[in-house]
Design a protein around this nucleic acid. Structure first.
Length: 264
DNA sequence: GCTTGGACCTGATTGC
DNA sequence: TGCAATCAGGTCCAAG
């Protein structure tokens, strides 16, 4: 999409998780997408008309690129078209289709020069792969926190962009119990945690993400990081380190997978 | 002010 | 086989 013009936008329903912003199609059509970036789990497309096209995949959202483009990204029609909710027709012939069965994703528009005041971004923590994120940062962010470290790492105001899978994996690699209160973890262990969080994210990106049921990359490829899970979705299986069974518990309504032998 | 849990919506899986 | 219950990668908001 980057460098291309949005020739036409087709919204096939009036809302996703939230209603589309007012006059969404008209505000996007005709604009050139000058830069496509990301903040946490939000995709941010900067448009030539000064607005930012903000897109979130929710849990089951997916963008697929159809049409001829440098010989790649040429695919047959999607298998579940009833969940194709938005179609962007780009200059150059590509069709970018947003599909989201569960409709937890959404799209929004916000002035590019005011993104720091976009509500979800205000107060958001640093990116886990940025220089700002470190053991020292975690010590400061966790100070006085009585929530379990699992819940604290999922809080986007602490660190931006970690989800349930990667928090479970990072805690396992760090040897830290998900039940440990965030404010009670020693500084040296937070240094380890910061390193492992970064490594998990970087490895997952290289592997093309995690496909549990329906995630696909833009070219239709599946992710491969699920083959590297050490605890996530492995309840009852042997821990890869100590062979004790991996446990599951529910924290703040989310499943946590962990090893009681390795994580203290 | 901080933390938890329900709600949002659909589909796949499990159990009766 | 068929139906109901449960669970799922995220985020927001009300209640505690």
């Amino acid at each position: 999409m980057e460098g291309k013009r949005v020739l036409r936008v087709e919204t096939r329903r009036k809302d996703l998780r939230f209603p589309f912003p007012k006059n969404f199609n008209q505000r996007v059509e005709g604009a050139k997408l000058t830069r496509l970036g990301r903040r946490a789990k939000y995709l941010v497309g900067e448009l030539s008309n000064g607005e930012a096209l903000i897109m979130h995949l929710g849990m089951t959202g997916r963008f697929t690129v159809f049409g001829k483009q440098k010989g790649n990204f040429h695919h047959a029609a999607g298998e579940d078209e009833k969940h194709d909710h938005v179609v962007f027709e780009m200059s150059g012939g590509a069709r970018v289709v947003f599909n989201d069965a569960r409709r937890f994703g959404f799209m929004d528009l916000w002035p590019v020069d005011d993104l720091e005041n976009y509500a979800p971004f205000a107060g958001m923590g640093p990116e886990p792969i940025s220089n700002e994120f470190s053991g020292a940062y975690l010590a400061e962010a966790f100070a006085g926190k009585k929530a379990p470290v699992k819940a604290a790492l999922l809080d986007q105001n602490v660190v931006a962009g970690l989800g349930n899978i990667y928090v479970c994996e990072a805690l396992f690699r760090s040897g830290i119990s998900p039940k440990k209160l965030a404010g009670s973890i020693r500084r040296d262990r937070l240094e380890t945690l910061a390193v492992e969080v970064r490594k998990v994210i970087e490895e997952a990106i290289v592997a093309g993400g995690s496909t549990i049921s329906d995630f696909k990359q833009a070219d239709g490829e599946l992710g491969y990081f699920q083959h590297s899970f050490q605890v996530y979705d492995r309840e009852g299986e042997d821990c890869v380190v100590c062979a004790k069974p991996v446990k599951r518990l529910v924290q703040s309504g989310r499943s946590t997978f962990w090893c009681a032998g390795c994580q203290r």
